[in-house]
């Protein structure tokens, strides 16, 4: 029934399983051997060396990284909610165990990233407050609801697939702690994407109802997944956005549009294998470009959801705040215990 054997484990399903990831890993290991360690920030960037926490760096570089890493961390912990929603209703014990492990991973990824952000001189508590009062954002994909079990499949396959495509180049980010956190994240995300693919694979080989459920989930998640790469930033659109500066600083390595194209090219054959029809009538292979052409993304919807008018924006933040407040007594108890133990240690030493 759960035919793992029909999904070839050696066939790469996401960017963390391709040569791109291996190249990013090797790049990090080679960086220290590249000449140019003698100079300051600009010289290090020019030599494609890593910047480390206590190095001198321009204030804008620091602020850009804090904003980006914090937004990334927030996305990980808000991203626990859509799937966490299905833990009590997972269709089998196996699925439930996998889902719990995945949601726990998202929490872990949030913590790696907050840890990286803190090396830039900001307190985690401050970042959480900025999330809670809306001063900092998270990926708008998590403002869509998970209506059926198939959504857990579609999120793993498409949302995690898109996230990995974005994150593999970040393993070569110029800021050392961020790059190292991304290496861990990508490695673990790979399982997330595979389990999503497997959920859909099984549904597509089930009853007509199950197939329809899988197709419906893919219909709803495809376009928001493409929007995850961010607004167009090549050609005319390159002016004014963050892309140019972030590329000059080695924070960003590819444009949003390039990564989106790579993602589409990777997903179309996987959809065919699944038997899912992607909801884009304009999707077709372009022999000349050597890429798939695809239709126009609804950027009005993207901006609307980002501004706060998505289906679940209020619910996500409300839930996050409540979880934080409800956990206050645990933090207080741990503090009280630590204080008591410290006093006892002091007394016994006296």
């Amino acid at each position: 029934m759960y035919g793992n054997d029909v999904i070839d484990p050696n066939e790469p399903l996401n960017a963390a399983e391709t040569a791109d990831y291996d190249a990013a890993l090797a790049d990090g290991q080679e960086a220290e051997h590249r000449p140019g360690d003698g100079g300051g920030f600009e010289a290090l960037i020019a030599a494609d060396q890593r910047i480390e926490p206590r190095d001198d760096m321009p204030e804008k570089y620091r602020q850009t990284l804090i904003r980006q890493i914090a937004q990334h961390a927030h996305s990980e912990i808000i991203g626990m909610q859509p799937e966490g929603n299905w833990i009590t209703r997972a269709p089998s014990l196996r699925r439930k165990a996998i889902l719990i492990a995945k949601v726990q991973d998202e929490a872990g990824h949030g913590l790696y990233l907050y840890s990286a952000a803190e090396t830039l001189g900001i307190d985690r508590q401050e970042l959480l407050e900025r999330l809670h009062d809306g001063r900092q954002k998270y990926s708008s994909i998590f403002n869509y609801p998970t209506l059926t079990w198939a959504d857990c499949g579609a999120i793993g396959w498409l949302v995690d697939g898109a996230a990995i495509m974005n994150q593999v180049p970040l393993c070569r980010c110029s800021y050392g702690p961020y790059a190292r956190a991304m290496i861990r994240v990508c490695k673990e995300e790979s399982f997330h994407q595979r389990q999503g693919f497997e959920i859909l694979w099984n549904l597509m080989r089930g009853t007509e109802g199950q197939q329809a459920m899988a197709q419906d989930a893919a219909n709803r998640w495809w376009w928001p997944a493409l929007a995850m790469f961010g607004p167009p930033d090549t050609g005319e659109a390159a002016k004014g956005g963050h892309t140019e500066q972030s590329m000059a600083w080695g924070i960003k390595r590819f444009s949003n549009d390039d990564l989106r194209q790579k993602f589409v090219d990777m997903m179309v054959p996987q959809a065919e294998k699944l038997g899912i029809v992607l909801p884009d009538p304009e999707l077709r292979w372009n022999e000349e470009r050597g890429h798939y052409d695809f239709g126009e993304i609804d950027w009005d919807e993207f901006w609307q959801v980002l501004r706060g008018d998505g289906p679940c924006n209020a619910e996500r933040i409300e839930h996050r705040r409540r979880a934080h407040d409800d956990g206050a007594w645990v933090r207080e108890a741990a503090n009280a215990y630590a204080a008591k133990q410290a006093t006892r240690t002091k007394e016994s030493a006296a």
């Binding site: 090396t119 001189g121 900001i122 508590q125 741990a334």
Partner: peptide
């Protein structure tokens, strides 16, 4: 160490 000490005392130690 690498990490700058928290700016406030609200957090647990690093």
């Amino acid at each position: 160490s690498d990490a700058v000490a928290p700016s406030s005392e609200r957090s647990w130690p690093l």
